[in-house]
Every structure is written in structure tokens, then in C-alpha cells.
Design a protein around this nucleic acid. Structure first.
Length: 536
RNA sequence: GUCCCGGUCGUCUAGUCCGGCCAAGGACCCCAGAUUUUCAUUCUGGUAACACGGGUUCGAAUCCCGUCCGGGAUACCA
């Protein structure tokens, strides 16, 4: 996707900055990720809004890795973040493992660019060396605090150092940080795509550190140099960066560069209403993947935390979001994460897939309950099994715990099943008779025998008014008709018969329609379980 | 402390810019009922909110002011 985005630093020299109004940039929102931990909910949403903005604008979506916090950045974290984004379906046009014309996309590989910009700022007087030790800075802050003037921060004691004083510090072996010289008490009105017009005053901000003595830049500085270098047009980020945005605007100005459009989105809150942090449980994207959440649902749900497709519709696809997305429509208020609604949404998505699709997606978790060979020898049967549970579970991981009763000759009875068997004194007799009845029927064979013909012909779960499929074996509908006739002959109410029958067959009191159960279990298993329940 | 932002059902939100169509709509949750061989799905109905106080106006959830509450920032983290 080549665009008219022009390189502000052609050939990476620092000679020219070319992103003025006459040089329309290709929309290029960027998600900046810090590889110091997993991709969490908030980060994922921020990435998503950047992504959606880029796609909606027809621009490029960049992924930049801000790894200047060397003590905490790890390659493992980077991999986890990349996987998390991909799992959600958020793909980037430029960035790690992808490249692009505006790289490198790792800040630690861009050190010379920061150095160049720093020299330029030093020469123009927008930056100055600060020789203060952490202790001196802290002491200055304490004084300001005691004065109760309001402002608390760096007191600017190195702001107007003479050349001699600087030489003195240098001679004493002090290595300076580079600070940005903030305009003093300048009122400015800034426009934010989400917050609207906001008035701020630079007197509430201090001279901030841009570059460490070792040449590693700090966030605000690296960010601006890279936004210029990568011709970033839109910055969508968490609201906690709003003040940084002010500092950054001033730096763009000092560098004669055009500032991107900022959109500061509200934070995702935890149950206590506080900023969701990496320390809050269950915020790692890959945990959701591993727990069997459909990524489409997680994507949809996270998007909904602050943005809506329309007033009366909660469910939408990635494509629909891109078509309708406008960053200005993201809300201003923080949103609490609601696991219940996410879960509901998971169920909604899970029910949309065909049984074959669902089986495929659930397979990693199903393997705990289903013999490996069954996936090839009994694909049709497994599809029917999965289909019977699609309306009963919300996560891919939940099938495995429900379908154990389908395997093995016999089944263990849970408490509810025992109760249902014991309620009717004649249950054993009924079941024995019913076993004989089924023996005379034409049930499909039981797993692990080949029953392909049966499963190919009948699609479960059975629906009320569905046409009767052509099948060489008895279908659920025929089994039901036969069973109703049987109970009539026996003189037992159908409603009373059904409970012990289910208990004997499945070992529990929940599950698919009873005759789907009989069909799924097949002849041998049904007979074995009925006779076992009847006491042999 | 100071600066900035926010505040509609328990939760996510529509409506707020351009005041009347809002005795506030949708969704999740919850409750009741229908269907039914269980559970679930589905369907129907229900409970539930404009933070508070002043203005402006014929009329305010919507505009203005104040208060309260909540959050964020105030790093040689991002």
C-alpha cells in the first residue's frame, strides 16, 4: 500500500522536514507498544482504534516498538504482543517482521536520529544540558512543594547556566541530561479529536528530560522524533498521555514540524473503577486465547468499550467496524470491563460457526477429551456432538468438559442422575424393556465403530419441523416416535420415562435432546448402559 | 497541593454539538411467563438511570454557573 506519505527525513538525513500542508501525508496512525509485558486489554483496544482509524481512512497502520526502557524491555514480551495483535486480527502495514519505508521500527535502532534532533534543539536553544543529580532535583521539588505555589516539578536550576558553570560541572565529571526548555506561562488551546478544545498553560509543566547522558531518549522525545520521521498523522493513545501531548506539541513546534492529530481515548477501568493495569488479573490477551475465547468476540467486546456501531446494535464484524469507524465517535468517559457481557458475546459468536468450523476451532481443547484418531475417523460424528453443544457453551474450551459421557461403554452417574433413577420404583424394569425395544430398532453403530453413513445423513441437533432426512439408520425423529409408542404400550407417562432414561444414558440430567443422545450413542452403548442401569 | 478530563439503568451505551420527536431507547445481568423430554437456545413481558443545587427559557438529560464524586497527570517509565 504505497501512499503519498513523504519522508520527512529523506534518506534519514536531518536536512529537511517536509510534512507541511502542501505535502499531504498519507494517513498513518501508529500504535506504539512497549515490550515490557503482555499485551493487555487497554493496549489491545488502543491498537485496535489506531488500526480501525487507519483502515477507515484508507491509510497505513504502523507498529512501533518503544524499547527505550532497556531494563524492562524483553524480546519475549515483544513476541507476546505481536501474537496478541495477530490473534485479534489486528495487522500492521509497517513495523516489526514487516519492515517499511520509514524504519527502523525499534527505537533502540534509531539512536542516531535522536542524537541529531538533540543537537539541533541544543543549537536553537530549545534544549539545554542539566547537570542536576537525582538528589538535587528531589530537593528542588521539595522546596516548591513547601511553597504551595501549586506547581511542583523540576525547578529549572540548570536552565540558565553560563558556559563557565557548565564547564565546571563537566570538569567535575557530571554528565548532563538534556532538558526541553518549555515556554514560560504560555497559554495555549489545543484540539483533541476526542476531548475537543482544551485550554492549558505551560506554567503547569516543567522542563522535561529528553535524552539521558548515554544517548537513550525518553518517551516524549523519542515519540516526537519518530512521529516526524515516520510521518505519523494520527496518534490514538490512552488519556494518561494527555499532558505528554502538550509537551510533544511544543517539541513539534521547536522542530518546525507539523503535529499529528491527537486522540486521547478514555481508560479501561477495573471493577474498582481504577485504571486497568498489567497487574490486574486476566488482562493478558493470550490468556483469553488460551482459555478458549473466540477472538472475534473479544475484538467486538473491546471495541464496544468506548465505541458503538450504532445505538441498537452491539454485534459487528471487523469489516463493519472499519466501515463505520470514526475516531471522533469514541466516548470520553472511562468504561468498566464487564466479563458477563463478554461471555454472552462469546456465545453469540460461537453459535455463528458451522459445526465443522466450530469443531476445528475447538480442537485444541477437545483433544483432552477426544482420542486423536477420532478427528479423522469420526469427523462427522464429532461435528454432530459439537453442534449439540454450541448453544450450551460460550468458550471453545468448554466442550471438552461436557462430552465425556459419549465415550466408553459405561458412564458414571452424578448425583442428579442417581436421583432421577431412584425416583421411579419401576425404572429398572422400564429400562430393561426399553433396551429390548432398542435392540429391535435400527440404531447407528456406536463409537469407535464406523458410523459415517449415519452422521453424514443426519445433522444434529434435531429441529422441530425439519424434514426427515434420508438415512439408513433410525433418525432421532424415528427413535422418538418409537419411544412414544413404547411408553404408551408400557402404560408409562412419556414425561416420567424420559428422566431415568437420560440419567442411564448420559449419567447426568442435562444435555442435548434425548433422541439426539440415543442417536449419538448408538446401538451397543445404549444397550450396555440401559442394561447396566437396569441392574444387568 | 496543582493542572487536565469525566459523571444517563448494577454494567456497556443511544440521545448532548443544532433545547421540544425522551413521562429517556438498545444491550448484558436479574426476575416472571411461553415453548419443551432435561439443560440450553429462542420468544414475550418486567425491574432499573439523566450526580446535586442554582440559573437561562414557554420548554433542559441537552445551554451557563457552582458543588460533589470519580479518574488521569504531576519520573533520568511509557
Amino acid at each position: 500500500m504505497p501512499g503519498p506519505r513523504s519522508a520527512p527525513f529523506p534518506g534519514r538525513s536531518r536536512s529537511a522536514i517536509l510534512c507541511g500542508p502542501d505535502d499531504p501525508r498519507h494517513p498513518a496512525p501508529a500504535f506504539r507498544s512497549v515490550p515490557t509485558g503482555p499485551l493487555h486489554l487497554g493496549g489491545a483496544r488502543t491498537a485496535m482504534y489506531n488500526w480501525a482509524a487507519a483502515r477507515a481512512l484508507g491509510g497505513a497502520f504502523l507498529l512501533r516498538i518503544e524499547d527505550t526502557d532497556q531494563a524492562r524491555s524483553t524480546d519475549a514480551s515483544l513476541q507476546v504482543i505481536l501474537q496478541g495483535l495477530r490473534w485479534l486480527g489486528i495487522d500492521w502495514d509497517e513495523g516489526p517482521e514487516k519492515g517499511g519505508d520509514f524504519g527502523p521500527y525499534f527505537q533502540m535502532q534509531r539512536l542516531p536520529l535522536y542524537r541529531q534532533a538533540a543537537e539541533r534543539l541544543l543549537a536553537s536553544g530549545h534544549a539545554y544540558p542539566c547537570y542536576c543529580t537525582p538528589e538535587e532535583i528531589e530537593a528542588g521539588r521539595k522546596v516548591l512543594e513547601a511553597q504551595k505555589t501549586g506547581f511542583v516539578g523540576y525547578d529549572g536550576r540548570c536552565r540558565e547556566l553560563t558556559a563557565a558553570q557548565r564547564a565546571g560541572f563537566a570538569a567535575a565529571g557530571r554528565r548532563p541530561n538534556l532538558r526541553f526548555r518549555m515556554p514560560q506561562a504560555r497559554a495555549l488551546q489545543v484540539h483533541d479529536l476526542i476531548l475537543g478544545d482544551v485550554e492549558v498553560n505551560t506554567r503547569d509543566l516543567d522542563d522535561w528530560v529528553m535524552l539521558r547522558p548515554d544517548g537513550v531518549p525518553l518517551y516524549n522525545f523519542a515519540c516526537v522524533v519518530d512521529d516526524i520521521g515516520m510521518a505519523i498523522t494520527h496518534v490514538v493513545r490512552g488519556n494518561e498521555h494527555f499532558q505528554n501531548g502538550i509537551k510533544q506539541r511544543l517539541l513539534f513546534e521547536a522542530l518546525d514540524a507539523e503535529c499529528p492529530q491527537y486522540a486521547h481515548i478514555p481508560l479501561i477501568l477495573n471493577k474498582e473503577g481504577k485504571k486497568l493495569s498489567k497487574r490486574d488479573a486476566d488482562t493478558n490477551m493470550l490468556d483469553y486465547r488460551d482459555k478458549g475465547f473466540p477472538p472475534e468476540a473479544v475484538f467486538n467486546y473491546i471495541a464496544l468499550l468506548g465505541w458503538g456501531f450504532s445505538g441498537d446494535r452491539d454485534l459487528f464484524s471487523r469489516d463493519e467496524m472499519v466501515a463505520a469507524f470514526r475516531i471522533e465517535n469514541v466516548g470520553k468517559a472511562g468504561a468498566k470491563f464487564d466479563e458477563e457481557k463478554l461471555r454472552w458475546m462469546c456465545g453469540e459468536y460461537l453459535r455463528r460457526w458451522t459445526p465443522a468450523q466450530c469443531l476445528e476451532r475447538a480442537r485444541p481443547w477437545l483433544q483432552a477429551a477426544v482420542p486423536a484418531a477420532a478427528f479423522t475417523t469420526h469427523a462427522g460424528w464429532l461435528q454432530n456432538v459439537v453442534a449439540c453443544y454450541q448453544e450450551r457453551v460460550a468458550l471453545y474450551s468448554e466442550f471438552a468438559g461436557r462430552i465425556g459421557w459419549l465415550f466408553g461403554e459405561h458412564v458414571a452417574l452424578d448425583e442428579a442422575a442417581r436421583k432421577n433413577l431412584g425416583k421411579e420404583p419401576a425404572a429398572a424394569d422400564w429400562l430393561r424393556a426399553y433396551a429390548d425395544e432398542l435392540a429391535a430398532a435400527n440404531l447407528p453403530p456406536s463409537y469407535p465403530q464406523d458410523r459415517t453413513a449415519a452422521d453424514a445423513a443426519v445433522a444434529l441437533p434435531s429441529k422441530k419441523d425439519a424434514p426427515e432426512p434420508a438415512c439408513a439408520f433410525d433418525t432421532p425423529a424415528r427413535i422418538e416416535a418409537r419411544t412414544r409408542a413404547f411408553t404408551e404400550r408400557l402404560g408409562v407417562k412419556f414425561g416420567n420415562f424420559v428422566h431415568p432414561l437420560r440419567a442411564a444414558l448420559t449419567g447426568t440430567d442435562k444435555g442435548p435432546g434425548l433422541f439426539d443422545v440415543v442417536f449419538l450413542l448408538g446401538r451397543q452403548t445404549c444397550l450396555a448402559r440401559l442394561r447396566a442401569a437396569a441392574g444387568g
